[in-house]
Design a protein around this nucleic acid. Structure first.
Lengths: 260, 260
DNA sequence: CGATGTATTGACCAGCTTCAAGTAACGTGG
DNA sequence: CCACGTTACTTGAAGCTGGTCAATACATCG
């Protein structure tokens, strides 16, 4: 984490808010282009740049009236818990992901959002979703797009957890996260991908026990398909083989998303 | 199935399209009210009333450019398949549900939609999502709402499949579907809830084998928590006990949804 | 330097899957 | 009207995948 992004306290506002025009994410060419009108509206709705330390909750489970965020930097998870210390990670959030939609809409059972790494987000007021729809339908459409897209990623997880073997599950998770995170990590090609998930996280994402997750990872390591280097950097020598093992298409085609 | 809703052939258009104003679903008082402008727009975008027979595919897996539907009557499933005859049911669709959003937006891996019973739907053109957003932001917002809401139902399924025991899973599925479907079945109180899922469906929804699903159901039956009567009518003598068994809140609060 | 979190490994076993087989209900065509 | 195919349900036996329990090693951190 570079110092300028680390807040002094939990969920603290940063000194100088970055204008959306200068948003470093947009330069990445991963996102749908926006015109000036759209950018201005997003800028107006943006309340603050906020950062959280690794481990902090952006949204606690079972709360409503939560704010909305766009994740700018770092990793986070969406999760639910059950009695007996059971936790299910629903989705891993990466830069560009929009956070907090489900909470806002219905009062269906909610989930928590926790920072995995130090994290940097844009915060929006709760009613920004409605404002976006009302003022600029193109951005409202973008919100719908993002929601539908996250939905299909959760669908994939559900398929894994429900119908894939432990080996297939872990392979699927690794290769999917690898593909999603790669564009956000400059040093991935040389040093490996910065990968903050612990074995416990992988277990909680795939509905496995910690011990068995470890055994599966060891197996993948022995087959030369997985390596975790010092500093938590992930190397997948043969992503395609992992994808085949998980019965996933490769390469994973990723559509250009809206960034709000 | 009443005769007037049964089409002559697969996915056949019905003779007379029902105007949205007269839509029988809206009278149910389960949905957010709409004004005349909104109703007119929905009516314009509506292409046809269509019905499918039980078992037919509304949307085949791995196709794009699929139409959009609103489910008016009957049950359907959203599912994905994997090699080796493995299938995961992602979500059970009931009247009022909007179908086909994920397919439209990104080209992320897609799912199929299959009718469980004879089914009656409104069909919309593919670009209706954008038109709704552009012409009437309130309806665009409704689409986002529906997407987020379905998302949180899938989240619940993922929690079940990942972290609940077989007994808890089946209990959770039964009680959740019971609560969702009850308002759509007049005879539920007297005859039991019309319930078209087979044991195989329950297994595929909860990531279990058919045999084990059967054993779990027998156990629930022996405990007096579950009964399936002639004609496939589901009776849950003590839904609250099932909910507690699954560690679900009870009663399940259901927000008033938009109907598009 | 102890406390904490993560990774690692072995032993044991249970929850669930797989295989196999039989029953019942239903629709179809001869 | 009955033989037959099909689908759903049912049950038992065997065994594997993956869970639980327990203990060690290692790093980081205040």
């Amino acid at each position: 984490m570079s110092d300028k992004l680390v807040a002094r306290s939990a969920g603290g506002d940063l000194g100088g808010a970055v204008r959306c025009v200068e948003c470093p994410l947009r330069r990445l060419d991963l996102y749908q282009p926006v015109n000036d009108t759209e950018l201005t509206l997003i800028d107006e709705l943006k309340r603050a740049d906020v950062s959280y330390r690794a481990g902090e909750m952006l949204i606690a489970e079972n709360t409503d009236d939560t704010p909305l965020f766009t994740l700018l930097r770092g990793w986070a998870i969406r999760f639910k818990t059950l009695g007996g210390g059971r936790r299910q990670i629903l989705h891993v959030l990466l830069p560009g992901d929009f956070i907090g939609l489900q909470q806002k809409m219905s009062d269906a059972a909610s989930h928590g959002v926790q920072a995995l790494t130090d994290v940097h987000v844009c915060r929006f007021a709760r009613d920004a979703v409605w404002t976006l729809h009302r003022e600029l339908p193109s951005l409202g459409y973008g919100i719908t797009w993002l929601s539908a897209n996250q939905n299909s990623l959760v669908d994939d997880n559900l398929l894994s957890v429900g119908r894939r073997s432990a080996l297939e599950r872990v392979a699927a998770l690794l290769v999917t996260l690898y593909a999603r995170a790669l564009p956000h990590d400059d040093e991935a090609a040389t040093l490996g991908l910065r990968f903050p998930l612990t074995q416990q996280h992988i277990a909680d994402a795939m509905g496995l026990s910690l011990v068995h997750t470890h055994r599966v990872l060891r197996q993948l390591r022995q087959r030369g398909l997985y390596e975790l280097q010092d500093g938590g950097r992930l190397v997948l020598p043969d992503p395609k083989a992992l994808a085949q093992m998980a019965r996933l298409r490769w390469p994973l085609e990723m559509a250009r998303a809206p960034l709000i």
